[in-house]
């Protein structure tokens, strides 16, 4: 019985992030004296939606094996938000082209990242880091000294709620379901997992390893591009610094969510669990009023704790 349960949990390492989320929420509500439990969940769903969208891309990249990581996400968000707002230019009719342009910018950066890795044989961590510098420079040139407002319709759409649930959260949930389907049921998805487990064997098995890698970096860039446009709509315009927090956050969310850092095994539900968890830790510590130094310390300890508990249940590879 117990062994069966343990087996279940080992197969679903993401469960810990949801347990952590629930515990954090309970503590927060008890600190606030029972006030605002529902509103906290609503805020958590909204802001986690952004985190989920970018982290899904990061998860796919990390799943393609050791050393693969996308450090260009913050720059892509800065660039795509500027592109989206420039194209929309406060006109409601240009919302779709604006979103398309933002995604296209992200896809292009993703493709370029892969090009650097493949053609110049630069390690992904260096390739995406250096491309992020170039992308940020482009974003500075494009967005310098101007914060363009989103069209009112777009701003209303991204802040709207459907039956009490933020529309953004529904979009992010749909994206998560789609990625889960792709991972489990498509040749591309299975190839990504296979590459992460062993690139050599995947190639010998006749899988198109290079195409899958290219698509993965493009997917990560495209999702970051979309997120950049959505953040600009949500926050009243584009700015250069709005992606900065997503560099370490996406990596933390992927790892806490139970995706294997060494690749080969993704965990889509864990992305949602960990994104909510990361938001609620901050809310909990803010509500508790402890000093900033202590907040960082506690955040670090909690993250280590969750990974240690989740990790110890995993079968050795």
């Amino acid at each position: 019985m117990l062994a069966a349960l343990r087996g279940r949990i080992a197969a679903a390492p993401w469960i810990w992030s949801f347990l952590g989320t629930a515990a954090t929420w309970l503590v927060t509500v008890s600190i606030s004296g029972g006030r605002g439990g529902e509103e906290i969940i609503s805020a958590a769903l909204t802001f986690s939606a952004f985190t989920v969208l970018v982290s899904l891309g990061q998860m796919m990249v990390i799943t393609t094996g050791p050393g693969n990581v996308d450090l260009s996400i913050p720059s892509v968000i800065a660039l795509s938000s500027a592109v989206a707002m420039l194209v929309m230019d406060e006109r409601a009719g240009m919302i779709v082209p604006g979103l398309a342009a933002a995604v296209a910018a992200g896809l292009a950066v993703g493709g370029a990242n892969y090009g650097l890795i493949r053609l110049l044989r630069i390690p992904p961590i260096i390739a995406t880091l250096s491309s992020s510098l170039v992308v940020m420079s482009v974003a500075i040139v494009l967005g310098r000294g101007l914060k363009i407002k989103p069209p009112q319709v777009f701003a209303d759409a991204v802040t709207t709620k459907v039956a009490g649930v933020p529309l953004l959260a529904i979009v992010a949930l749909a994206a998560a379901v789609a990625i889960a389907f792709v991972l489990e049921r498509t040749l591309y998805g299975r190839t990504v997992s296979a590459i992460g487990q062993s690139r050599r064997i995947a190639r010998l098995a006749g899988l198109d390893v290079e195409r899958a890698s290219l698509l993965t970096y493009m997917l990560s860039g495209g999702l970051a591009g979309l997120t950049g446009a959505l953040i600009a709509g949500f926050s009243g315009g584009n700015s250069l610094d709005q992606g900065a927090e997503y560099l370490l956050l996406t990596i933390a969310v992927v790892v806490i969510g139970g995706t294997s850092v060494s690749g080969g095994r993704a965990s889509v539900p864990g992305i949602w669990g960990a994104a909510l968890f990361m938001f609620l830790i901050v809310t909990m510590l803010n509500a508790s009023g402890v000093s900033p130094g202590l907040r960082m310390l506690i955040t670090g300890l909690i993250i280590i704790g969750v990974i240690a508990v989740g990790g110890s249940e995993r079968a050795p590879r």
């Binding site: 439990g37 926050s235 809310t283």
Partner: peptide, 24 residues
């Protein structure tokens, strides 16, 4: 209440949105 907005509008928005429900 006190939050860290990092001098960034989007971060401030996120942090304030998080703590607001717990505040009078």
């Amino acid at each position: 209440g006190s939050v860290h907005g990092n001098w960034t509008q989007t971060v401030a928005q996120k942090e304030v949105a998080g703590i607001l429900p717990t505040l009078p």
